[in-house]
């Protein structure tokens, strides 16, 4: 999940610092943010509560409805086992979207801890951590993820672990250079001069500042995280059958495309919408953050 923009940031080893004030307002004013949030809200609601409203169990097989076209009882058709495609789409959404958010949260957690530790402690600890990050960053992150899956074996949990393990290094480096900027900020210096200990300054001033910056960059990557989870599951390296997941559903419906092309539409458009929403939100957030730092 190396977007070109991220590569540029990585090479510059610097990034604008964003104050909190007005960020949310500028973000919400953007049309792309509104559309993105609307789609995201729709998808998340569907994934969270969909299976309570559409009460067909996603794993129930109905031999009479094998590969059935869309109808009132199966709005999106039924798959090769006669399982309801809508129910599976909703069930899979929980896994696809939940996985993306879990990966993001894991990456943020690890990189914050490592980056702040490196930036605050400095010295030998920082040197060792930075060299380790150099090594991780020397490998293409997705190749690293594939390698981790290869060692641990295929599966949903392992896939999440692999994605976190392969992408936290970039954020850790970002967090560390961010810490160095924040440390020199007025409020941090005055807090230190007022005799407040490093630990409290870190938790009260540094962590929120660095975390905000990381979240802005991470939101830009959310779309590619969704793509990678779906892509690896599509290859059979992630969620295993009979569990539903959008990428895995895509792989299954692919086999029956000639007889039941409608099966492919549902997971394909779900993935597309999710990535679109993530990209819209990410871009709007970046634009909202950049306005301030430019002026």
């Amino acid at each position: 999940m190396m977007t070109a923009e991220r590569l540029l940031l990585l090479r510059r080893e610097e990034f604008p610092f964003t104050p909190r004030r007005g960020l949310l307002r500028r973000f919400m004013e953007r049309r792309s943010a509104q559309i993105g949030l609307l789609i995201a809200a729709f998808l998340c609601t569907a994934a969270l509560f969909g299976n309570w409203i559409w009460r067909v169990p996603p794993e129930r097989m109905n031999p009479e409805a094998k590969l059935a076209p869309p109808s009132l009882s199966h709005p999106l058709g039924a798959d090769q086992f006669g399982r309801d495609q809508l129910a599976r789409l909703l069930d899979g959404g929980r896994r696809s979207l939940g996985a993306a958010l879990t990966v993001l949260a894991g990456v943020l957690l690890f990189s914050l801890i490592a980056g702040i530790a490196a930036g605050m402690i400095g010295g030998l600890v920082e040197q060792i951590l930075m060299r380790l990050l150099d090594v991780l960053l020397a490998m293409p992150s997705m190749v690293l993820a594939l390698a981790v899956v290869g060692v641990m074996g295929v599966g949903y949990g392992n896939l999440l672990l692999a994605l976190v393990a392969s992408s936290w290094a970039y954020y850790a480096r970002l967090a560390r250079s961010c810490v160095r900027v924040v440390r020199m900020r007025g409020d941090v210096v005055s807090a230190r001069l007022a005799g407040i200990g490093w630990l409290r300054v870190a938790s009260g001033h540094i962590v929120p500042g660095v975390a905000r910056q990381l979240i802005i960059v991470a939101t830009l990557d959310l779309g590619s995280v969704i793509i990678w989870i779906a892509g690896l599951s599509f290859l059979g390296l992630g969620v295993q059958p009979p569990d539903a997941e959008w990428g895995a559903m895509l792989a299954e419906s692919r086999l029956y495309f000639t007889v039941a092309p409608w099966l492919l539409c549902a997971p394909a458009s779900a993935i597309f919408l999710a990535v679109l929403a993530a990209n819209l939100i990410g871009n709007a957030l970046r634009d909202a953050a950049e306005v301030q730092s430019g002026g």
């Binding site: 490998m139 594939l146 390698a147 290869g150 290859l235």
Partner: peptide, 26 residues
């Protein structure tokens, strides 16, 4: 080839793939 190796947990091939990709990347 690497994807089939991952499914089969063919470690030497996975190693080779990562090594090759890292070299190209660097």
């Amino acid at each position: 080839f690497a994807v089939t190796a991952i499914t089969a947990r063919d470690l030497p091939v996975i190693q080779g793939f990562v090594l090759f990709s890292t070299l190209i990347f660097v």
